[in-house]
Amino acid sequence: MDPSSSGIQEPFDLIRLSLSERVFVKLRGDRELSGILHAYDGHMNLILSDVEETIMIVDEEGQGAVNIAKRKMNMLFVRGDGVILVSPPSRT
């Protein structure tokens, strides 16, 4: 068996153990979310509450200066096809 693994047999276990916890989600289109995970499925469709979205807008002319837009949403469905990665809170 794998000694370094902490009882995770498949990648989705990581997500299951994060239910009702705050997770970080990286999305296509330079977007990031932080929210409390309440539901997911095999497509990585997600339902999050208490969400803060961060959008990175790179200014092409301004020598790559990055503008950041933030907004909050109460309860959000996220379509799975936009998800790049999900990171749970660090378990210790």
């Binding site: 990648p11 997500i15 990585m44 990171s87 809170p89």
Partner: peptide, 8 residues
């Protein structure tokens, strides 16, 4: 840096 990550 992340403790754990799930990559789609």
């Amino acid at each position: 840096r992340y403790g754990d990550t799930f990559i789609r």
